[in-house]
Design a binder for these strands. Structure first.
Lengths: 251, 251
DNA sequence: CGAGGTGTTGAGATTTGTCAACCTACGTGG
DNA sequence: CCACGTAGGTTGACAAATCTCAACACCTCG
């Protein structure tokens, strides 16, 4: 049920799902859409997020071509987004965890341009887009945060381009692990110990590599004492080595 | 002076720069930020775009780390954006032509995260971001279009990820050419004849290939009768062949 | 006319992909 | 509770794509 990783403090007790649907009570408040919104305006955002949706592992939250009606905030669980070329190859465009938004791609054409797949049992807040547009006009803090989120997604994508366009296999895998652990750490999880929610193939499709290459990188890192790898259980023994590999920053 | 391509009708006569700075008079109106804004509201947008900036070939419009103050609409000319990893490799993240916005990356951290370089003498409209935020709250059509532009950039970036992550060299070059000609055609230029504004190396850095590989792809396409290539002059003889190569769509 | 930036081409090195075998973990049903 | 089937993961040998390095051609501009 937790996004990843075994030992660390869960961001919110399991009982929370019994509480009223409201950003006000949500521990992800300061990571998610309401970040920076004053408590005075928070009640208005609570109205926005009137509905939740629960997905089982493997379920699609939306798929390519679906009419765009809402964006979604991940509450619990883990997702991947993917696009596919007509001849069947696909590209994983991202992995999303608690507090991150899904569906922003749909604004431009009013249709979703990617599939969003739950990689474990997950729950999302449904944010109807029409209402979001209205409310961003009235609540400046919300507008600012929404634009920041859109822009951050653009910046993130450009980082992925750098990764895909200029890094070799080991660097890509190192960057992937550092990115994942940084985001887990922001959510209160361990920065050194994690459980991957995706297969080697999904990692490969994200990093522009074949699954065997991903596997070999993990094995090599293991042999070099950088990681302990046991299936999807990863412990990062030497994070500095990973950072050296990607040449610092850009993670 | 024109964005690319030799024979076709320029989107606006050269004398236009003598006119008052105003979207109302701008031939790019229906490609750019004001798209979809009613004539009643257009005057308010004219106030927004109070300033233009002229750049010579090679000039930087902004660079990584610059404080973010405005977004820019390309009026004439041609740009590339690039990010760089600490060890000096860089990645061209896009090429921008008339009617496209630059600087959206800066919203998230209030600093620019990429360099924007003019690839030929160019002119941009300066859109101060604070004023844009204010006006999008008041003009719904503008808000909608701005969000669409942000989202479109996300979708575009995901297309580049697909290209970088799953296509081979020839497919990438074919997709690049189709994308470029489609956008030129939208601006009234020829769909089959163009002048590249960037070097083979810049194309390569965009496509995640070395310049020699790009050059070899052009040569192969030439030998196969798909293109006529003479330095930066390109004529597309068999666009269908290019489309077959990238497997239709996703351009 | 020459210099420097840009583009082309070839030969060989390197990285990654492909294919195949095999191993491991996990869930299901007997 | 165990056996088995299946999906996922690892490893090796080889093939293919791309990169690297080097030589040279071309073009533009001073």
């Amino acid at each position: 049920m937790e996004p990843a990783s075994p030992p660390p403090p869960p961001p919110e007790p399991a009982t929370a799902s019994a509480l009223r649907v409201a950003c006000t009570n949500c521990s992800l408040r300061e990571l998610c859409l309401p970040m920076g919104v004053s408590t005075a305006d928070m009640a208005r955002i609570d109205e926005l997020v009137a509905q939740r949706r629960t997905l089982r592992r493997g379920d699609l939250l939306f798929r390519i071509g679906d009419p765009f009606e809402a964006v979604y905030a991940v509450r619990t669980g883990f997702f991947k987004t993917r696009i596919s070329s007509p001849d069947g190859r696909d590209q994983v465009t991202g992995f999303q965890m608690a507090g991150e938004l899904l569906g922003l791609d749909g604004i431009s054409t009013e249709q979703h341009t990617c599939d969003a797949v739950a990689l474990e049992d997950s729950q999302v807040c449904v944010i109807p887009y029409g209402q979001l547009e209205t409310l961003t006009r009235e609540v400046g803090d919300l507008q600012r945060q929404f634009h920041r989120i859109l822009s951050r997604e653009i910046v993130r994508d450009q980082g992925v381009m750098l990764l895909l366009g200029s890094m070799r296999a080991e660097e890509r895998v190192a960057a992937f692990l550092l990115n994942l652990t940084r985001r887990l750490e922001e959510r209160g999880f361990s920065a050194t110990s994690l459980v991957l929610r995706m297969t080697r193939e999904e990692i490969g499709t994200y990093l522009g590599l074949k699954l065997e290459t991903v596997s070999r990188c993990f094995s090599r890192f293991h042999d070099e004492g950088i990681l302990q790898v046991r299936q999807r259980q990863i412990r990062i023994v030497d994070p500095e080595a990973l950072r050296r590999l990607v040449g610092a920053a850009c993670v």
